[in-house]
């Protein structure tokens, strides 16, 4: 079974800080990591390869430094890594991103049996790119998968959807996005990082390698546009009270009385 895993290099979001003047995130000093759910997808691919054989190709679209993420994936056991990098790809929304990734998949020979990615990324959290790749390649999709069984050329899958536990049958080839319940990633071995630096090469494809015109990728190929970034608006009229625990409790009780949650004391 030949598997493609899409990975995205993201900032380690819980550690980011905001530049409140410029309304951007401060990337300096923040580690870049493989999107955690993409690690789950990679781990699942490694386990499937163990059982079913085949090869794992990791694909990433991003700036040149995304190479680090691909090297980590190679170190963890992926067979082949392809970096889709071109200054024309910058500023892509999910429509343009999925176009580049789908085009890269369609160049692979043989065409993969299974395409995997995380169901969301921690930086933009849209969950769009997986289904949009599936649409462009006319593949069936299942999102948020937490169990994968392969039965010949059929998949039997489980996933939680709005609390419903669905058991799903889908043919191969297919695209799945995975949830964190699929498998633990603690055993994703990155011990061989150094070996990966010397042993396997990373293939680089730019827009022209994929037969893509600059107008259909990046910002130019995007349907959406971020008009501005801002911090969540403060609620106005909020009153801040400090003092002894007893006076704090009194202030809270008065508020509950004014809201008629508590009856006023005689």
């Amino acid at each position: 079974m030949n598997i493609v895993v899409f990975i995205k290099q993201v900032p380690d979001v819980p550690n980011i800080r905001i530049d409140e003047q410029r309304m951007t995130i401060i990337r300096e000093g923040v580690e870049s990591i493989i999107n955690p759910l993409d690690c789950v997808a990679l781990q699942a691919a490694l386990e499937l390869r163990e059982r079913e054989g085949g090869r794992i190709t990791v694909l990433s679209m991003g700036p040149p430094q995304s190479e680090e993420a691909l090297r980590e994936a190679l170190a963890a056991g992926a067979d082949k890594a392809i970096l889709l990098t071109d200054s024309a790809f910058a500023g892509a929304d999910t429509l343009a991103t999925s176009h580049v990734l789908a085009r890269a998949v369609s160049k692979l020979r043989p065409f993969p049996d299974l395409l995997l990615c995380g169901m969301q990324t921690i930086d933009s959290d849209t969950g769009h790119v997986g289904p949009q790749i599936a649409e462009e390649l006319d593949l069936p999709q299942v999102c948020g998968v937490n169990e994968i069984h392969v039965d010949g050329d059929l998949l039997v899958l489980k996933r939680l959807s709005e609390g419903f536990l669905d058991t799903i049958r889908a043919p191969l080839p297919a695209l799945l996005t995975v949830s964190k319940e699929l498998c633990p990633v603690s055993d994703l071995s990155l011990g061989a990082v150094e070996a990966a630096f010397t042993q396997k090469d990373i293939i680089r494809w730019a827009a022209h390698d994929l037969g893509l015109h600059p107008d259909e990728v990046g910002l130019a190929g995007s349907a959406t546009h971020v008009r501005k970034l801002r911090q969540p608006a403060a609620r106005t009229g909020g009153r801040i009270v400090t003092g002894s625990p007893q006076s704090i409790v009194d202030a809270l009780i008065r508020k509950l009385e004014s809201m008629s949650i508590l009856d006023e004391e005689d």
């Binding site: 900032p11 979001v13 819980p14 980011i16 905001i18 309304m23 995130i25 921690i122 930086d123 933009s124 959290d125 349907a223 959406t224 546009h225 971020v226 008009r227 501005k228 970034l229 801002r230 911090q231 969540p232």
Partner: peptide, 14 residues
């Protein structure tokens, strides 16, 4: 929300 909700992005589809 973007970046885990630290920022809000105003998106338009022109």
């Amino acid at each position: 929300p973007a970046f885990g909700g630290e920022l809000l992005a105003e998106v338009v589809t022109p």
